[in-house]
């Protein structure tokens, strides 16, 4: 009985740490594997692994980075396993998981009918390592340090991947960069970069007292 109570306490603690990040974990996985059902399976597997190793998690450290590290390993393992399986080339009609530069072929451009889809295609065309850095930084709001910890690589590597990914995105989305995206996406009036950065610095100074 006592053992059971201890188990439920452990689970509650795990839930408190993990549940707030479930959406992020799923979003990241869908971006990587492009299949909702597979993404849920992978997130589930990663959460189970995390729970099994929960005793090794250092309390008070960043749970999000810890969870993402487990998730990314799970995704990489699954992809490695999949690549060893026989390909589906023999079927007449299959599900397409396009890779790399193929993505910018006309058929795929045809698919990318909306701006959102074009951004999606541009992100997918990035090598996996760059993609992970972009998603963690732009979408999940990770700091460089957190990304380095999650991907288990030096900060310099994070910065250089991010630099190259940005150059590639700039190239691929250049048609949409000629207009102000804030206006195009209706997210507010145009602000100059300097004004925005100054405002951000001011807010931070104020916060730090």
């Amino acid at each position: 009985m006592r053992e059971k109570a201890r188990g439920s306490g452990r689970r509650r603690e795990f839930e408190e740490l993990t549940l707030p990040h479930l959406g992020s974990l799923y979003r990241f996985t869908v971006q990587r594997v492009r299949n909702a059902a597979q993404a849920e399976d992978l997130v589930q597997e990663a959460c189970l692994k995390a729970y099994r190793g929960f005793d090794r998690f250092e309390r008070g450290t960043d749970a999000k980075a810890w969870l993402f590290r487990i998730l990314i390993n799970t995704i990489v393992d699954a992809q490695r396993k999949r690549s060893r399986e026989p390909t589906e080339l023999a079927v007449e009609i299959g599900t397409l998981k396009a890779e790399g530069s193929h993505l910018l072929d006309p058929e795929t451009q045809l698919m990318a009918e909306s701006l959102g889809q074009q951004v999606q295609v541009a992100i997918e065309a990035l090598p996996q390592d760059w993609q992970a850095v972009v998603l963690l930084s732009f979408v999940e709001g990770f700091t460089y340090k957190e990304i380095a910890k999650t991907l288990d690589c030096p900060i310099g590597t994070v910065m250089s991947r991010l630099y190259r990914a940005r150059q590639a995105l700039r190239h691929r989305l250049k048609r949409h960069l000629d207009v102000d995206p804030r206006r195009a996406t209706g997210t507010g009036p145009s602000v100059t970069p300097i004004a925005l950065l100054r405002a951000r610095r001011k807010a931070r100074d104020k916060k730090e007292g």
Partner: peptide, 15 residues
């Protein structure tokens, strides 16, 4: 612009 385009346009599916 690249950053805000990605942030604004990338789909955010929920589990």
């Amino acid at each position: 612009r690249v950053k805000s385009l990605v942030q604004a346009q990338l789909a955010a599916p929920a589990p």
